[in-house]
Amino acid sequence: MIKLFKYAVILFLCSAPSSLYSQNNTNLESNSLVLQQAKELYEELRCLVCQNQSLLESEAPLALDLKELIKEKLKEGKTKKEVKDFLVERYGEFILLLPTLSLQNLFLWIGPFIFLFIGIIFAYKFYTNFNRSSNKTKTLNPAEKKNVQKILDEKLE
């Protein structure tokens, strides 16, 4: 759930007037953009030792090394994507917590739409079937109509 909200936070941080930033961060590093990017990367990368944590959450030695490495690469001016590619080359796609949009992951990404689509198709069928069957029972054939009319007439008299 947090991912999209995270984007929100970032957007917020970028759009907020500078007075909103807390000035008291004691070891405010010179390059806050690097830190911001690094943090985003930490969250999208898996700690390989304690596997179900992201790098951000992990205090494992390898994770600390990786974090250091990521910061360095970003400071060198590498983009987030380049850093990711570097790590994928060494550790495989397993390290990415956010799967790439590749053919292999196609079903993962279109799956939710397929599920919704199937649901909608079923609902549609359900309603149309209902209408068909209810139409059948609701309209009376001429003979019945005559009969009903007759009964009604009798009653009215």
Binding site: K3, S54, E93, F94, L96, L98, Q104, L108
Partner: peptide, 10 residues
């Protein structure tokens, strides 16, 4: 081997 983590689910 792939991972599907919080960013996907969110």
């Amino acid at each position: 081997k792939v991972s599907v983590g919080p960013p996907y689910f969110e």
